[in-house]
Amino acid sequence: MARTLSVLLILCLAWFTIAAPLQRRQVGNLQCNINRLKIVTSLASTNTAVGKIDTTDPATASAVTAAQAGLTCAGAGIKTIAQSLFTGQAAPASARDQVQAGLLAAQTALAGITDPPATAAVTAAQNQLTTTIADGAAVVADCK
């Protein structure tokens, strides 16, 4: 009995030693959490900017749809990460990859728009997307 209790005590101590750093990392410090908020708000702003692009040209409409799909993909990755944080689980690396892939897909789609009437709105959306990508990079850098 004493031996079983000793083994359980050692296992508990090992668990708390391993789990404590993981939980601190998942919760993040102030800068990490500011960056998390920034990517969420800048992603919403990017969605708004993409929605303002004139889609009367069929090729532009297709590119806008692709950009919106990429942003939706990125948002789903962020949602997965947030759910992990709220439940105390480790955020899956695949969710971070999903955010990155979605943002890059949106960037590629916007770069393909050449319709002159949409130029100003496309430039605004690209600039906002650049901010969103930078915010995502800051999360990766600061939330370790």
Rank of each mutant, 00 (worst) to 15 (best):
F86S: 14
G28D: 02
L71P: 02
I81T: 12
A95S: 15
A120D: 14
A91H: 12
K79L: 14
D57R: 04
V27T: 06
R24E: 05
A20E: 12
T131K: 04
I18H: 11
K79M: 09
F86P: 01
T72S: 13
L85I: 12
A125R: 05
I18E: 12
D115H: 12
C12K: 01
G28A: 04
N47P: 00
S84T: 11
V50P: 07
A20G: 06
L9D: 04
T4H: 08
T48G: 01
P117F: 08
A93Y: 06
K52I: 01
Q107G: 06
V140D: 12
N35K: 07
A63C: 05
G51A: 05
C73D: 12
G136R: 03
N29D: 15
L13T: 09
A120K: 14
L129I: 05
P21H: 09
S42L: 08
L129W: 06
I53S: 00
S62T: 11
V50N: 04
A121M: 00
V50Y: 10
G28V: 06
A82G: 04
D57A: 09
S62M: 00
T108G: 05
S84Q: 13
G77Y: 02
T119I: 10
N47W: 01
F86C: 06
G112V: 11
A137Q: 10
G51R: 08
C12G: 13
I53M: 02
Q126D: 03
F86Q: 12
Q98V: 10
I78H: 07
A66E: 14
T55D: 13
L129E: 03
G28N: 01
C32F: 04
D54C: 04
V40W: 07
F86K: 13
V140H: 09
A74F: 09
S6I: 11
V7T: 12
I34T: 14
S84E: 07
L85P: 00
T4R: 09
T65S: 11
T119F: 11
N35V: 00
P21I: 11
C32K: 06
N47F: 02
A118K: 05
T65V: 02
Q68K: 15
A14C: 12
L22H: 06
A137G: 10
P117T: 08
R36I: 08
T80I: 10
I39Q: 08
T87Q: 14
Q128K: 05
Q31S: 13
L37A: 15
A120R: 10
A66M: 13
L8S: 15
A61M: 06
T17M: 15
Q26K: 02
T46F: 00
I81K: 08
A19M: 11
L9G: 08
A109K: 01
K144V: 07
Q68L: 12
A125N: 03
L129M: 09
L43W: 03
A95P: 13
P58E: 01
V99N: 03
N127Y: 00
V27G: 00
A134Y: 10
R25P: 02
A121E: 10
L104G: 01
K52Y: 02
D54V: 03
Q126T: 09
Q107E: 15
G102S: 11
F86M: 14
V7E: 09
L11I: 14
